[in-house]
Amino acid sequence: MTVARTPYPRLRRVATGWVDGLQRIGTQAEFYGKTLRFSGDAVVHYRTELARLIAQMSLGTGALAIIGGTVVIVGFLTLSSGAVIAVQGYNQFAEIGVEALTGFSSAYFNVRLIAPLIAAIGLAATIGAGATAQIGAMRINEEIDALEVIGVRSIAYLASTRVLAGVIVVIPLYCVAVLMSFLAARVGTTVFYGQSTGVYDHYFNTFLNPTDLIWSFAQAVVMAVLIMLVHTYYGFTASGGPAGVGEAVGRAVRTSLITATFVSMFVTLAVYGQSGNFNLSG
């Protein structure tokens, strides 16, 4: 008996892969649109859940609340990055005799690159991963189906509230991140390397542009929205038991970090790609 073979099997597999990929993108886009569209319903009907999520995301629950939750975690991350700016900036500038410009490196790199990316990493690893795990556990335990049966809009209740809470939390969170990065760079340069505080403050204030802070803050808010959208989607579509939830968390973290990197790159190119936007007047 002769079995008929499909002509061009490799081309068929490639085409099937492309179609499946486009379908997944369409499914994600539909979920993201519903999540953003139901944000108003989340504020009106699920205010208690929104307040609970804000407290949980910012200060943590259980044992995590002892150290302050996400605020302290992101603060320590940016503190360490600011210390690296002090160490590397001072030593590199000292090799060419312009170590006074360490204040410039703090005002320039912390605001434009380091603080937004470090804050995004902290959000993805703490708030985002937790949201994926929580929603994924509810999915495999059929709790989401139970919510829909009793008339609760699952996307608004679980996804939209978390996106709104992430945006609200990132506002003070990013302020803490920027201040900690500035403080670590200043203390490292003036205390440990002995540079004059007047010299450091002069060059820091000379090159610190308030417009850069506004763009950096807007960039952090956009990152928070995208990170929470990605993590809630992977939680909603988790399957395969506890192992499937763990896999969903890993995929969500990977996707959100890539997304945050692309946002940082596009914002940097759009805002600073033409002129650099240097502030040279003290």
Score class of each variant (00 low, 15 high):
176 V>K: 03
141 N>D: 03
181 S>H: 12
180 M>P: 08
154 S>R: 11
132 T>P: 02
130 G>R: 02
134 Q>H: 13
197 T>L: 10
193 Y>D: 11
149 V>S: 13
136 G>F: 07
168 I>L: 15
123 L>W: 03
195 Q>G: 12
194 G>R: 08
184 A>R: 14
188 G>N: 11
177 A>G: 06
147 L>A: 00
195 Q>S: 10
183 L>R: 10
171 I>F: 15
198 G>Y: 07
124 A>P: 01
137 A>Y: 01
172 P>R: 04
156 A>W: 08
183 L>G: 13
141 N>Q: 10
128 G>I: 09
149 V>H: 10
146 A>N: 00
153 R>V: 12
139 R>T: 15
123 L>F: 12
143 E>L: 14
169 V>A: 11
159 A>M: 08
131 A>D: 03
195 Q>Y: 12
133 A>Q: 01
172 P>K: 06
186 R>P: 05
174 Y>V: 11
135 I>W: 03
177 A>E: 07
136 G>M: 06
185 A>V: 08
151 G>C: 00
195 Q>K: 15
165 A>R: 01
177 A>Q: 05
157 Y>Q: 11
198 G>F: 05
151 G>V: 01
182 F>N: 02
127 I>P: 03
195 Q>P: 12
152 V>Y: 00
190 T>S: 15
133 A>V: 01
134 Q>E: 13
197 T>G: 08
185 A>Y: 13
186 R>A: 14
165 A>Y: 01
125 A>R: 02
176 V>W: 03
140 I>S: 00
163 V>T: 00
182 F>E: 02
136 G>K: 03
166 G>W: 02
190 T>E: 14
157 Y>H: 12
126 T>M: 06
147 L>N: 05
186 R>W: 15
191 V>G: 07
141 N>E: 06
122 G>D: 00
150 I>R: 07
194 G>W: 02
187 V>G: 14
161 T>L: 04
154 S>C: 11
175 C>F: 14
198 G>S: 12
175 C>V: 14
195 Q>M: 15
125 A>H: 03
129 A>W: 05
165 A>G: 08
157 Y>W: 01
164 L>H: 07
151 G>P: 02
140 I>F: 10
176 V>G: 06
138 M>Y: 01
169 V>L: 05
189 T>Q: 10
159 A>S: 07
198 G>K: 06
128 G>A: 09
158 L>D: 08
124 A>R: 00
170 V>M: 15
152 V>P: 06
171 I>H: 13
164 L>C: 03
121 I>Q: 08
178 V>N: 00
167 V>G: 04
131 A>H: 07
163 V>P: 06
143 E>F: 09
122 G>T: 03
190 T>W: 13
162 R>V: 10
140 I>P: 09
192 F>C: 11
128 G>E: 06
166 G>D: 03
154 S>K: 12
190 T>Y: 13
198 G>P: 14
170 V>H: 04
162 R>D: 03
138 M>D: 09
133 A>I: 09
141 N>C: 11
162 R>I: 11
176 V>F: 04
